[in-house]
């Protein structure tokens, strides 16, 4: 099962993850997002992508292939970093 954790220090309570998730995994509580139903998470990671505070972490998600990543660009970035 997928486990989701929210960094309460980082979460700014914008509620984008609550609105975006079609499975209603998240709910707002005391100004931060709370993953109430992680058992319904299908691992699409759209909440992960839209979170402006990058406060979400998912464990147990099957990573899909990333064929769109260009190794030339990444190797250049690695040199810079």
């Amino acid at each position: 099962m997928i486990q989701i954790s929210v960094d309460e220090q980082a979460c700014n309570g914008c509620g984008l993850c609550v609105k975006d998730c079609p499975m209603n995994v998240f709910e707002m509580g005391s100004g931060v997002s709370i993953p109430r139903r992680p058992e319904n998470c299908m691992g699409c990671l759209s909440c992960h992508e839209i979170c402006p505070a990058q406060a979400l972490e998912h464990q147990g998600v099957v990573p899909s292939r990333r064929m769109y990543i260009s190794s030339r660009v990444c190797s250049m970035l690695n040199r810079v970093i």
Partner: peptide
């Protein structure tokens, strides 16, 4: 298409 995401779609 129910939902689309960067890692999976429903």
């Amino acid at each position: 298409i129910v939902h689309t995401g960067p890692n999976a779609c429903l």
